[in-house]
Structure formats: C-alpha cells, structure tokens
Amino acid sequence: MPEQRSRRRHVVTHVVLMAGALLMVSPFLWQFLTSLKTLGESTRVPPTVLPEAVRWENYSAFFDVVPVGSMAVNSVLALVLRVVGQLLVASLAAYVFARLRFRFRGPLLACFLVVLMVPPQLFVIPQYEVIRTMGWLNSVQALALPGMFSAFGVFVLYQFMRTLPAELDEAARIDGANPWQIYLRVILPLCRPALAALTILTSLFSWNDLLWPLIVNTIPDRMTLPVGLATLQGAQGTDYPVLMAGSLLTILPMVLVFVLLQKQFIRGIAMSGLKA
C-alpha cells in the first residue's frame, strides 16, 4: 500500500521534473532548429517548427566570417594557462590565509575578498593599461593574466582549507617541515577535490569570457571564440539562422565537456558553495 502511494508520487514528481527540464532545454532545441532554417523561415509568422530543408550552410557561414580554428586554439590555450595559474596562485594564498598565523592577516584577507564585490567591468580599463604597459596586447598571456589572480579561487580554496584539521600542520611541523613543505606535501594533496572544482569553474569563466578578450586581443588570429561570435553578430546583423548556428558551435564544446565530466562539474559547483 505505501509502496503504491510512493510510486504514484513518483509519477507526479516525474511530470513536474520533466516539465521543468523541458523549459530548461527548449531554448537550445529552438536554437538548433532555427540554425537549420533559412532567414525567411526564421522570421515567419506563425513560426514553423521544423525547417523545410536542412541548411547546414548556416554553420559554414561562421567559418567564412571568422578564423574559427585559430580562435578555438586561442580559447584553449588561454583556458589552460589561466587554470594552471589560478590553481597555483589561489592555492598559495588560500593556504597562507587558512593555515598560517601572521600579522595583518585579517586586513590582507579582506583585500582579497572585497574584490569579489566589485562589478568586474570596473577593472577592465586599468587592467588593459597594465597589459599594454607590459607590451602583451594580442597575446595568450594577456587573455589569461588577470583571471589567474582572481580572488574567487582564493575564496573557494580558503573555505575548503579551513575545514582541514589543524593537527595536520602541527604533526608535520613537529617532523620539522616548513610551511612550504606542508603546503606542498600535506595540504595540497588533501585539496584535490577543491582544486578539481576550481579547475572546472575557472575553465567555465575562461571559455565564456567576452569583454576582456574583446579588448586585449584585436587581431583576428589572436581572438577567442566568444569574440568571434560577437564579430559574427556584427557582420550578420540579425540573420538568425547564422547567429544561432554560430552560438551553438561556440557553446557546444563546454556542453560536451560537461556531459563527459558531469560529476566533477556538479561537485565543483557544490564545492564553491559549501558552507563555511
């Protein structure tokens, strides 16, 4: 009897969840269907659901407008550099704040955290000036640098490291290890789940970033994919099928990676939000 009730309840649950899921993905379905239509079809009233004839040409239009290949390479290189840099920088800072006792710890930590409250657009111009002064415009490091020092990673890892028991450090110290050795041999290995989470989040930020790459890398061969998409929009105006095709191509890699590494992604998000 209770079993039956629970099954009935599951039917309701499925209906609700399915309806919600449909709402979540319908924009992507519509995007895909539109990407195969002609311009005329895409603006027809009332809209037609299925394309009359499948037009894959809309996808090649993206390749005609921008050098998609080199852009994809740039996006990947920038992502790798930014992730590696962010992991190093953030884990060091987080370790110092979470495990060491030193003067001005509070104020220094506040310096890192207050940055998270600032609208990111505010930093763009001064950061641009820094990169320019270094002579690094139109380079991979220009794409990755500011993000490497993002306080977000410090925040995530700091939250995690604080939860590790203090006895770990003390035992290592008694064995004669210095803080650098403790960081390297004791703390970091324990942070692997948090580092994985940060890797995923930083990758997401890096791949989807638009404003910054748009400003620092202006030579087509050095641009990233989102910039290519913005360029496409500039070139094709409101040619919906071509725009939908281009945007689908740009988001596809991240979605595929997500589907493959789903568990890690979900853990990553959960981790960044773990309670303090």
Binding site: M117, P120, S150, F155, N208
Partner: peptide, 10 residues
Amino acid sequence: GTTGTGAPAG
C-alpha cells in the same frame, strides 16, 4: 561573469 576578472560573486 563574462569578464576577465572571472568570478562573478563570492
């Protein structure tokens, strides 16, 4: 966030 600073929030 879509800017170079990465993290949207914290």
